[in-house]
């Protein structure tokens, strides 16, 4: 099996989809691939080893990617749902309401 095939097998054995490997760096790929036995199943202790690798992986991405720390907010909202107003109304003061209506115009 190639390294990519081993990684895919490990991900499946851990309940994850193949695309979850997209952001692994070379060292992480090698470490994940090493958890795959020749039968295509995890080596003993593979689940826990994979979990620890993923914890480190996400920590690395958080430390190096602004994207992970900045929530993606929906764009192009032409028609906000009515529920938005229903939810906000009780908590707003009259001044807030006036500001909101002014911004909406």
């Amino acid at each position: 099996m190639t390294e990519d095939q081993r990684i895919t097998r490990v991900l499946a054995c851990c309940g994850k989809a193949p695309r979850s490997a997209w952001a692994l760096d070379d060292a992480e790929k090698a470490a994940v691939a090493a958890l795959c036995g020749d039968d295509g199943l995890l080596v003993a202790g593979g689940q826990e080893a994979f979990r620890l690798l993923m914890v480190e992986h996400y920590e690395r991405r958080k430390a190096t990617s602004e994207e992970l720390e900045t929530p993606v907010v929906g764009t192009g909202v032409d028609h906000p749902f009515v529920a938005t107003e229903i939810e906000l109304t009780p908590a707003w003061s009259e001044d807030d309401e006036a500001d909101y209506l002014k911004e909406s115009e």
Partner: peptide, 20 residues
């Protein structure tokens, strides 16, 4: 679809492998 969603599910969000 199975290449995106594993048996354990797949979170969607800016911090995850599926972002939207």
């Amino acid at each position: 679809l199975l290449s995106w969603i594993g048996l354990a599910g797949q979170c969607v969000g800016s911090a995850f492998d599926v972002t939207r």
